[in-house]
Simulated assay, not measured.
Amino acid sequence: MPANDLRVLPCGDAAILVDLDDLERVLALHATLTQEPPAGVVDLVPAASTLLVVFDPASTTRARLTDDIVRRPPHTAAARPRPLVEIGVRYDGADLDDVAAHTGLTRAEVVRRHTAPEYTVAFNGFAPGFAYLTGMDPALTVPRRTSPRTRVPAGSVAVADRYSGIYPRQAPGGWQLVGHTDIVLWDLDRTPPALLLPGTRVRFLDLTEGGPE
């Protein structure tokens, strides 16, 4: 159902998928639905170009929820920001030199530019606790590795395309590794288990001894 280039598709018996084709619009809609949720909404799951809206069929209907969403303005005010999470990083990643070479920057400038912005969690995916962080300096935009690693250590801080991210556990991966952190991103004994939820603000702190060369 199109409205302002917005499409709403049924997804199972108790969800709709809002297709926006644009991350910024996904974040804006996620923000307004978080701040002013329609009746019956029980969960929101953003992605790069879509927003999954899960609802309670006993409290609302797909038609009513769809009508509420398509009537909202295409551009909305941001939701109240979440607390800031600061993450200490040792910039000793295996791909730091490759990132510097690809961008034409020195190692020190890569680190400076990576720690300068305040990031926002756009969405989660790939693995439990893995957050796609937006707000990275465009100068650090690099492609994924041509040959993904079979094992990336837990806590690896990485960049790929316009995103930065942290591997919450050991896993295969093709992002460019620039450093590592000891912070625990996924803990089943924590509520919620994920430290970095959509909308969370993040800053990286350079803990590298002696600083990068």
Score class of each variant (00 low, 15 high):
residue 189 D to W: 01
residue 35 Q to F: 05
residue 8 V to W: 00
residue 44 L to C: 11
residue 10 P to Y: 00
residue 17 L to Q: 10
residue 195 L to D: 01
residue 155 G to W: 00
residue 12 G to W: 02
residue 196 L to M: 06
residue 108 A to F: 04
residue 85 V to L: 00
residue 186 W to G: 01
residue 173 G to M: 05
residue 67 D to H: 15
residue 138 P to W: 08
residue 115 T to E: 08
residue 169 R to V: 03
residue 209 E to H: 11
residue 160 A to L: 08
residue 28 A to H: 08
residue 157 V to L: 02
residue 207 L to W: 11
residue 89 V to H: 05
residue 19 D to Y: 08
residue 34 T to G: 13
residue 110 V to M: 07
residue 121 V to R: 09
residue 96 L to M: 10
residue 176 Q to P: 06
residue 146 T to E: 14
residue 185 L to A: 05
residue 3 A to H: 10
residue 133 L to S: 10
residue 197 L to K: 02
residue 144 R to V: 08
residue 98 D to R: 07
residue 62 R to Y: 04
residue 31 A to W: 03
residue 79 A to D: 02
residue 176 Q to M: 14
residue 210 G to Q: 07
residue 159 V to M: 06
residue 61 T to Y: 07
residue 196 L to Q: 04
residue 16 I to G: 03
residue 110 V to T: 09
residue 114 H to S: 10
residue 51 L to W: 12
residue 61 T to E: 08
residue 76 T to V: 15
residue 199 G to H: 05
residue 158 A to M: 01
residue 139 A to Q: 13
residue 84 L to Y: 07
residue 176 Q to W: 04
residue 153 P to D: 09
residue 112 R to V: 01
residue 163 Y to S: 05
residue 142 V to T: 15
residue 23 L to C: 12
residue 188 L to A: 11
residue 192 P to M: 00
residue 116 A to D: 14
residue 47 A to G: 15
residue 154 A to I: 05
residue 51 L to N: 13
residue 116 A to V: 09
residue 162 R to T: 11
residue 138 P to M: 07
residue 81 P to K: 03
residue 168 P to M: 02
residue 187 D to W: 02
residue 26 V to C: 11
residue 138 P to E: 12
residue 172 P to W: 09
residue 176 Q to A: 09
residue 90 R to A: 10
residue 211 G to V: 11
residue 30 H to N: 14
residue 147 S to E: 14
residue 112 R to T: 13
residue 130 F to E: 09
residue 41 V to W: 07
residue 100 A to N: 02
residue 191 T to I: 06
residue 139 A to P: 06
residue 49 S to D: 15
residue 115 T to K: 05
residue 188 L to K: 04
residue 103 T to S: 07
residue 179 G to R: 01
residue 124 N to E: 13
residue 80 R to A: 15
residue 121 V to Q: 10
residue 12 G to T: 04
residue 164 S to M: 06
residue 210 G to R: 03
residue 34 T to C: 10
residue 58 A to C: 13
residue 182 D to Q: 02
